[in-house]
Amino acid sequence: MSYILLVDDDRDDIELTMLGFRDEGFKCEVAVAHDGKEALDFLLAAYSAHRPLPAAVLLDLKMPRMDGFELITRVMGDPRLRHIPVAVLTSSGHETDIKEAERLGASRYLRKPTDLKDYFLIVQEVKALMTVKTAP
């Protein structure tokens, strides 16, 4: 059973993303981590325990303890994890943020929608990411 890991420190945004997914009929299972550190620990623990790794990681950039940029760096720098597609889901449209995330290895840069209907686009993108089959 494939699932995605959603990393966001904002509980409202997590809720809205879930709502958006639900409204769009996206039935995928979603694991949640509240910062980069928690997400990295989760991924490494899953790897060690031979549990399945998520089909994609959807992460926010501004987070406590470990921010999105560092999480991307850690995942991409880890041979055990670097096959997992990573997408940024954030409210920042800052040019430098987008460029930096891409440089570090993020596959997508998505903006958190204002309109729930726009989660349609997010779902499309996430689905596309999940189909990227890479060997663990």
């Binding site: 709502l19 920042s92 958190k112 309109d115 729930l116």
Partner: peptide, 20 residues
Amino acid sequence: SHDLRAPLRKISAFSQAILQ
């Protein structure tokens, strides 16, 4: 303006959620 955006987004999205 950047920080204002986030709560605003939530207000409108949650209002929409209630309506829908």
